[in-house]
Design a protein around this nucleic acid. Structure first.
Length: 302
DNA sequence: CATCCGTGGCT
DNA sequence: TAGCCAAGGAT
C-alpha cells in the first residue's frame, strides 16, 4: 500500500484491509472483487491484484510460508527491488539497502549530484551510497533501522521543497547543506501532457446507480458510470443515443479535474433520466474507479 | 528504458 | 490555480 502512497493516506485502508483479511490464507481465498472494493480510492489498483496473487502463491504453493530473503521476496508479483529490500531488511535483518525517492534525494544533495530525479545513474549512486553506509555501520545490528532512518530523514528534514538543513544529522559532509540543497535533484523530465474532456452520466434509483465494469487495460476490474469523450453540450444527447444507449441527459452536476500521468482530465458530470434499470447496482457493492467515486460524490452532493 | 498506473497534499 | 511529487512495479 505504501508504494508511491503517503502513510496518512494508507492508514485507514490498511486497518480496514487487515480487519477483513487478517492473514494470508483469508486474503488468498477472497475474491478479487472483494479485494478491489477495499482498495477502491487508494489508487494503483494493480497493486491490489498483485498482492492478491502473491497471497495465493504464499498460501497455496508455499503452504503459508513467507519468503526469507530479498531474492525470494522479489519473485512475488508486485514485490520489486525496493519493497523486497525493505521487507528483507526490516523483517529479516538482511543487510541490504533500500533506495526510494527519499534516499535518492538525500544522496543527490549529499553529493551535490546534478542528476535528474528519475535518472538511473542517480539510482545507482544511491545504491552504492547505501551499501557503503551499511558496511560502515555493520556494528549496528538493525539494517532495517538504517534504511528507515534515511527514508525518514528524507520525509521529514531533507524534504523536496524546504529542507531543514539546520537540524540535519548529515549536514556535516553534505555538499549542499545550507546552500542550494533544494535544487537537488534536478526535476524529472515529464512526458507531453494531453488534455482530455470526459462526460459521465449518472442515473440513480433508490440508491442504485447505473455502473459498468471498466474495459481499459489498466482499469479492468473497476466500475464506473458510463461516459463519453466530451463534445459541445448541444451534441451530447445525439452522441449518447447514437451509441445505443437509453435515457435522456439531464442537468449538469458539476465537474472535477483529475490527473492520470500525462492526461489532464476534465470530468463533467450529468444527470441521466429514464435509463434502463437492469444495470443499476449499489455503488458500495462494487470496486469503483477514482473518477467513478468522484462522480457518485458529485451526484450525492447535489 | 520509456511508459503505463491514482490519489491527495503542499506550495 | 497549476505544478510537483510521494516508503514503485510491470511491461
Amino acid at each position: 500500500m505504501l508504494q508511491q502512497t503517503r502513510v496518512d493516506a494508507v492508514v485507514p485502508y490498511y486497518e480496514r484491509f487487515l480487519e477483513e483479511f487478517p492473514d494470508v490464507h483469508t486474503l488468498a481465498q477472497a475474491s478479487e472483487e472483494d479485494v478491489l472494493r477495499l482498495w477502491s480510492g487508494l489508487g494503483y489498483y494493480r497493486r491490489a491484484k498483485m498482492l492478491h496473487k502473491a497471497a495465493s502463491i504464499v498460501s497455496e504453493d508455499c503452504e503459508g510460508a513467507f519468503p526469507r530473503s530479498q531474492t525470494e521476496w522479489q519473485e512475488l508479483p508486485g514485490i520489486g527491488e525496493y519493497t523486497s529490500a525493505a521487507i528483507a531488511s526490516i523483517a529479516h535483518g538482511e543487510a541490504v539497502g533500500v533506495v526510494d525517492g527519499n534516499v535518492r534525494r538525500v544522496v543527490a544533495r549529499h553529493g551535490a549530484l546534478r542528476l535528474r530525479a528519475n535518472d538511473r545513474k542517480l539510482h545507482q549512486h544511491a545504491q552504492n551510497w547505501m551499501a557503503t553506509r551499511m558496511t560502515e555501520l555493520a556494528e549496528v545490528q538493525e539494517p532495517g533501522s538504517l534504511n528507515q532512518a534515511v527514508m525518514e530523514l528524507g520525509a521529514t528534514i531533507c524534504t523536496p521543497a524546504n529542507p531543514n538543513c539546520d537540524v540535519c544529522p548529515l549536514k556535516i559532509g553534505c555538499a549542499a547543506a545550507g546552500k542550494n540543497a533544494a535544487t537537488f535533484p534536478l526535476s524529472a523530465k515529464r512526458a507531453q501532457e494531453i488534455a482530455l474532456d470526459i462526460c459521465f452520466f449518472l442515473a440513480e434509483k433508490d440508491g442504485m446507480f447505473l455502473l459498468r465494469p471498466c474495459t481499459g487495460r489498466w482499469t479492468k476490474g473497476l466500475w464506473e458510470p458510463p461516459s463519453l469523450e466530451c463534445c459541445p453540450d448541444s451534441q451530447l444527447q445525439d452522441l449518447w443515443s447514437q451509441s445505443g444507449e437509453t435515457g435522456m441527459i439531464g442537468s449538469r452536476l458539476g465537474a472535477v479535474r483529475h490527473r492520470i500521468t500525462k492526461y489532464k482530465i476534465h470530468a463533467h458530470f450529468f444527470r441521466l433520466e429514464g435509463a434502463r434499470k437492469d444495470q443499476f447496482v449499489a455503488p458500495e457493492s462494487v470496486p469503483l474507479s477514482g473518477l467513478g467515486k468522484k462522480a457518485i460524490r458529485a451526484y450525492l452532493s447535489t
